[in-house]
């Protein structure tokens, strides 16, 4: 292939832009393994001697607890979101019952409601049932706010589910729960994985609700935990950047492994 001038320009544009976008993240990971002095003297050089102790220190200062909290909250929320959304989406897509369309529209219209517009009532309700400052108080709204997007995505998938399989399961004597949980859901893994990846990344990073629901340091999720270090380590940049790196790595790894499913869920969202 002949290398034309315009082709080189395009490569330089895409490469240069991509490099520029990547710089802050490269800097974050590089700096997290340096000494404070190195960080300022040569920001983009490799560390002379990797300071893994930064990670150890950040880990012991609470990051480990925050990561565990985020893992608990995210996992439970995502499992519940997938379960209730799959059941609802199946019914809405495959069963003809009165009010079906109204319920479908109500559920998916909910995705337009910004969480900030309901912070006050949620705070009141959670307070009155004693769920303020608990993980359950975070998980319940997470599930509710995860429903619209998940139902939308799964509904589209279930519409095309082959009815022969449903009929066969019915003939085998499956009741409706067995049909959905044992037959339909296992055969819908690609769609379920899309929902799982999307919601996991979103909830891992969620901040606004965590900010009003969680008070105890020991219950903080990772974004909320990072804000504590924001004040505490405003001068100790290497520790701050090590914490940011540790908060980012889990979603980054999840994204790289399941990139295709994640992008598919975004594209489904935009269609």
């Amino acid at each position: 292939m002949k290398l034309r001038f315009s082709t080189i320009i395009v490569y330089l544009l895409v490469g240069g832009y991509t490099l520029l976008v990547s710089l802050p993240i490269v800097w974050m990971f590089l700096s997290s393994t340096k000494t404070v002095r190195e960080l300022f003297s040569s920001p983009f050089a490799l560390p002379q001697e990797p300071q893994w102790s930064n990670f150890a220190k950040a880990w012991e200062s609470g990051i480990s607890q925050y990561l565990v909290n985020s893992l608990i909250v995210t996992t439970l929320s995502v499992v519940l979101i997938v379960l209730v959304s799959a059941l609802a989406a199946y019914a809405l897509a495959r069963i003809n019952f009165p009010g079906r369309i109204a319920i479908y529209l109500l559920l998916i219209a909910g995705f337009a409601i910004p969480v900030h517009t309901v912070l006050v009532p949620l705070y009141r309700s959670l307070n009155s049932v004693g769920l303020l400052n608990t993980h359950a108080g975070l998980i319940l709204p997470y599930v509710a706010f995860g429903i619209p997007f998940s139902v939308l995505l799964l509904y589209a998938f279930f519409l095309e589910f082959p009815s022969e399989i449903e009929d066969a399961a019915r003939i085998d004597g499956c009741n409706i729960w067995q049909l959905v949980l044992r037959v339909v859901m296992p055969l819908s893994l690609p769609a379920l994985v899309s929902v799982v990846v999307f919601q996991s990344v979103f909830l891992w990073n969620e901040f606004s609700l965590a900010l009003i629901v969680i008070r105890d340091d020991a219950l903080r999720t990772i974004p909320l935990g990072l804000t504590k270090f924001q004040g505490q380590w405003s001068t100790n940049w290497t520790l701050m950047l090590a914490s940011l790196s540790m908060a980012t790595l889990p979603v980054l790894i999840l994204f790289i492994i399941l990139q295709r499913q994640f992008i598919r869920s975004l594209v489904g969202f935009s269609k």
């Binding site: 003809n96 559920l107 709204p141 429903i147």
Partner: peptide
């Protein structure tokens, strides 16, 4: 249909 929709619908109505 109502049984399957109920959990999502109840959570959604209560919390959104």
């Amino acid at each position: 249909g109502y049984m399957l929709v109920a959990p999502a619908l109840i959570l959604f109505v209560l919390l959104v």
